[in-house]
């Protein structure tokens, strides 16, 4: 029987969140600025340079069509990247032991880092959204749904980043998933095109990509239009949150990558 005290666990969780937020803001030139600049370049390319030549897609301008996907891409990448780099850094420098020797429950450690990832993901998402207003009008058809999808997606990928950090043994392992899995899945997840335009079998293959559901749910929240039923998207999103959370917690409890 373990004598976890809820109030003690809560303070530990808040401390971890505070530490993460301070870190993100302290190194803002690494955490906030680059994704905003990168996405601005996308806006310039797909707006004034290419957008007018492509014309309309699903009844809106091409830039309006890709903007929700670009925002979601920033949210996914930054949520994931924040947790994986911060927690692996703590492992690498061994200061993760500060938490491991304390009475903080594993769930408080996990949620503390995840909320840090959500903070960065949503902050970058907000900055990108504000930047996009200089290039395209965003009607935001379903505001609550838009926020909910952004938050849930950010939570899912923060947990995902935590798993990556636990399993990573070196800095190569930290870069492999974002580079070879996350970026291709995001690029092919309907950010730049509608899956309805794809020929078979690529159209069917695309439905195996979980990021497709997240991008389309977010697009539905902003533009009111989606390739996929919103209920299914939310269901899949929730499923990934549960899956990643359980996996991360089990690995943490086993001490994978942390305890000898």
């Amino acid at each position: 029987m373990s004598s976890v005290r809820p109030a003690e666990a809560w303070v530990g969780f808040v401390t971890t969140v505070r530490k993460e937020v301070v870190r993100i803001l302290r190194i803002w030139a690494q955490t906030i600025l680059p994704p905003v600049i990168t996405t601005t370049l996308y806006f310039i390319i797909f707006g004034p340079i290419l957008g007018d030549r492509i014309g309309q897609m699903e009844g809106v301008t091409y830039l309006q069509y890709v903007t929700p996907g670009l925002i979601m891409m920033a949210v996914i990448t930054n949520s994931y990247q924040n947790v994986v780099s911060s927690f692996f850094g703590a492992k690498f420098q061994s200061h993760v032991e500060e938490m491991l020797v304390s009475p903080m429950p594993d769930s408080a450690i996990l949620f503390g880092y995840a909320i840090g990832g959500v903070f960065r993901g949503l902050l970058v998402g907000l900055m990108v959204s504000l930047t996009s207003l200089f290039f395209a009008a965003l009607p935001v058809a379903h505001p609550m749904l838009t926020i909910a999808v952004a938050v849930l997606t950010s939570v899912a990928f923060s947990f995902g980043g935590f798993i990556n950090a636990l399993l990573a043994r070196n800095f190569d392992d930290v870069a492999i998933v974002p580079t070879f899995v996350l970026t291709p899945l995001t690029m092919l997840g309907g950010v730049f095109y509608s899956v309805s335009l794809l020929p078979e079998p690529w159209r069917s293959v695309s439905f195996a990509n979980p990021i497709l559901y997240m991008v389309n749910a977010f697009r539905y929240g902003i533009l009111g239009d989606s390739d996929i039923a919103i209920g299914l998207s939310l269901l899949i999103l929730s499923g990934f949150i549960v899956l990643f959370y359980v996996a991360a917690l089990l690995l943490l409890k086993r001490g994978t990558g942390l305890r000898a």
């Binding site: 005290r5 109030a7 303070v11 301070v22 500060e98 304390s102 009475p103 903080m104």
Partner: peptide, 19 residues
């Protein structure tokens, strides 16, 4: 400890982990 953090932050955080 995190070499990029300040002593006050490091020690106060540790107290926070203990509730």
């Amino acid at each position: 400890f995190n070499q990029f953090e300040k002593p006050l932050q490091i020690v106060a955080q540790q107290a926070g982990y203990y509730g």
